[in-house]
Amino acid sequence: MKRARNFNAGPAALPLEVLQRAQNEWLNIEDSGMSVMELSHRSAEFEKIHNHAIQTLKELMEIPENYEVLLLQGGASLQFSMIPMNILKDGKRADYVLTGSWSEKALKEAKKVGETAVVASSKDDTYTYIPKVTDIEMNEDAAYLHITSNNTIYGTQWNEFPATGNVPLVADMSSDILSRKIDVSKFGIIYAGAQKNLGPSGITVVIIRKDLITDNDKIPSMLNYSIHSKNNSLYNTPPTLAIYLLSLVLDWAKEQGGVEKIAEINAEKAKAIYDIIDNSNGFYKGHALYESRSHMNVTFTLPTEEAEKQFLKEVKEAGFVGLNGHRSIGGCRASIYNAVPLSHCQELAAFMKKFQDAYMAKETQTH
């Protein structure tokens, strides 16, 4: 079977080596005589898998001892509610930086819980850039400052994170976690749906500073960080298959040379495609401003709607998957998460160049 060149935005590509290992262990995990999907989540075999995933993530991201790693359900979208429910106290305000649709959705849910404020935004310019950290009008007494580190729909990414002092910095890193080295100690909470860089859909990683985990009997148990922390994320039946695959992806990341090596490859992948855009004389136009470009989601348009339709038709016929832009803005998008091979990005870049040359030659003949 020939593997698709998968540029889907999420659920996204998984490393081939991970899928092959899962296939080999499919019927007999840890010599149990069972598939991982059949294991009790209270069994020693699954507990080993569960704890290995948590420990490997701590190692890869160099997570300090005063942080907890929780493996939860509900996607990053549930965190839009859980975060304010747990740490937005009465009399406090939560500050939000708007850089795209997901930060808008996070703000919408927080408003239902307590007082919020937008302290910086690039909405007026169709989210083509990340606001400068010096332009953030943060309240020094805020409950937290929320950002979305990478914006999948618009193709923008934070290159510098705001220094927030005593205010916890909360980041939705669903689409760029583990893609580059970060200083976890600068954040109060990092959360991420797994289905882009960490594994399959169905599991959400929450990295939270322990002092932000407080007992509050008024919060429903399934939405309470304290409950999940006390139970090692095993308060209820977890998505065991997703956690197992998360564990395998983290092992794969270590085998690649860790986060620093992965970041180097990601930079090469992004450069291959952006170089085609930048040298196309305007045939391909990137949505994001240069200084805010994402290394995870390359968004671009073509000169006309007709050219775009033709490009998307031909690129699909050539074996590339998932190049359509998000339905809300259209255009094209190449999502080049950790598991997308460099060779696939180079092949896409070559296709883009070939398509431009053929299209322009045809246009010249027509006129």
Score class of each variant (00 low, 15 high):
K230M: 01
N231L: 00
N231H: 04
S233W: 00
S233T: 05
S233A: 10
L234F: 01
L234A: 03
N236Y: 11
T237F: 00
T237D: 04
P238D: 03
P239F: 08
L241F: 11
A242E: 10
I243M: 01
I243F: 00
I243Y: 01
Y244E: 04
Y244W: 07
L245C: 03
L245R: 04
L245A: 04
L248K: 14
L248N: 08
L248V: 11
V249Q: 10
V249P: 03
L250T: 07
L250A: 07
W252L: 06
W252D: 15
A253E: 15
E255L: 08
E255S: 09
Q256N: 12
Q256G: 07
G258E: 15
G258M: 12
V259E: 11
V259T: 08
K261W: 04
K261C: 12
I262S: 02
I262Y: 07
I262W: 03
I262N: 07
A263N: 08
A263W: 02
E264S: 14
I265V: 15
N266H: 10
N266P: 01
A267N: 14
A267H: 12
A267T: 13
E268R: 12
A270Q: 14
K271D: 14
K271T: 15
A272E: 10
A272I: 12
A272H: 05
I273T: 11
I273Y: 11
Y274V: 13
Y274K: 11
D275S: 15
D275R: 07
I276P: 09
I276C: 12
I277E: 05
I277T: 09
I277F: 08
D278S: 13
N279T: 14
S280Y: 02
S280W: 02
S280E: 02
G282I: 03
F283C: 02
